[in-house]
């Protein structure tokens, strides 16, 4: 294109191959390679007859899954996990979506205070408020019950739904609602025919992301669940914790089942949302 030897180049566009790009590709590559090996190790071990110190297991078997299902009451645990997951998703959408609507559509005195209330649970590690919350739930005899686990999981989920949906609703032109009213629609009809259909992608995404978070949420469930309300992630913790009395393959079989439950909603969610949204959408709403 140009004179040979011209050392200067036009503004380098992203994707151009330079030394820094190569270094970054290597960093990302090493990271993903280790991650893949880590996951593969767990998966492989769950199918191993025995595996000690060699590169690959001595033989393969599926019997650890049957063993794990039997020993760890896996069916009960799965039932609890999905009951908690479904309840938290439905409740946090029902509670969070209206609040998001109000925040998206209205400027009012004290709005910053309300925003702060919704932001705080996301700026604190769950275990920090989990301990007083569990203590308070014990006081009302709610700890160690399914209701207690669900309530505890709502604390981070409702703010998450609000933070995710508020910018989403802001993007929906308010004139659409006004137009519907001009066409004679009542408030419930505006919601049913205009807002909910337009919000559907956002609601779906928020619901799936809440489900993923609940499945992975260890601390709050751990602190509020009794033996009968363990979700999969908590049950997995206990089996690892009590390692030594159980074969490692059985523990890893459980880990694989846990991975699958987390991946399915994730794969569905990725069809609807940009991965960067999954982390959190706090950036716009952040304390300005």
């Amino acid at each position: 294109m140009t004179i040979a030897g011209a050392s200067e180049r036009p503004v380098r566009r992203a994707g151009g191959l330079s030394l820094t790009s190569i270094v970054l590709v290597v960093v990302l590559g090493v990271f993903f390679l280790n991650l893949a090996a880590l996951i593969l190790g767990v998966v492989l071990n769950s199918f191993a007859t025995s595996w000690f110190g060699s590169l690959v297991p001595d033989g393969l078997t599926t019997r650890w899954y049957a063993y794990a299902a039997d020993t760890f009451q896996l069916l009960d645990v799965l039932r609890v996990t999905f009951t908690v997951g479904a309840a938290v998703v439905v409740l946090s959408l029902l509670i969070g979506a209206p609040a998001a609507y109000a925040l998206a559509r209205r400027q009012f005195p004290g709005k910053r205070l309300v925003m702060l209330l919704f932001l705080l649970p996301m700026l604190l590690a769950p275990i920090t408020y989990g301990i007083p919350l569990a203590t308070a739930l014990y006081q009302f005899d709610l700890a160690g019950s399914l209701a207690g686990v669900i309530l505890a999981n709502l604390v981070p989920s409702v703010p998450f739904v609000i933070l995710l949906l508020t910018p989403f609703i802001e993007q929906i032109d308010e004139n659409l609602e006004r137009a519907a009213r001009m066409c004679g629609a009542s408030t419930p009809r505006v919601f049913a025919k205009i807002l909910i259909p337009l919000m559907a992608p956002g609601l779906l995404a928020a619901g799936l992301l809440v489900l993923i978070r609940v499945l992975a949420m260890f601390e709050l469930t751990f602190l509020t669940a009794g033996p009968g309300e363990q979700t999969l992630v908590v049950a997995l913790y206990y089996t690892v914790f009590a390692a030594g009395i159980r074969p490692t393959q059985a523990i890893d079989a459980m880990a694989v089942i846990y991975m699958l439950t987390a991946f399915v909603p994730l794969l569905v969610a990725l069809r609807f949302v940009n991965p960067t949204q999954i982390v959190a959408r706090i950036k716009q709403e952040n304390v300005r």
């Binding site: 990302l28 880590l38 992630v233 690892v240 991946f263 991965p275 960067t276």
Partner: peptide
């Protein structure tokens, strides 16, 4: 870019418990 970001989401969904279990082995 989409593939890279998708891969990045995976460990976040795995959660700390599973990563810890994997690390013990790996």
């Amino acid at each position: 870019k989409r593939v890279i970001t998708t891969l990045l989401v995976l460990p976040a969904t795995l959660g700390t418990v599973l990563v810890a279990e994997g690390l013990i082995r790996y």
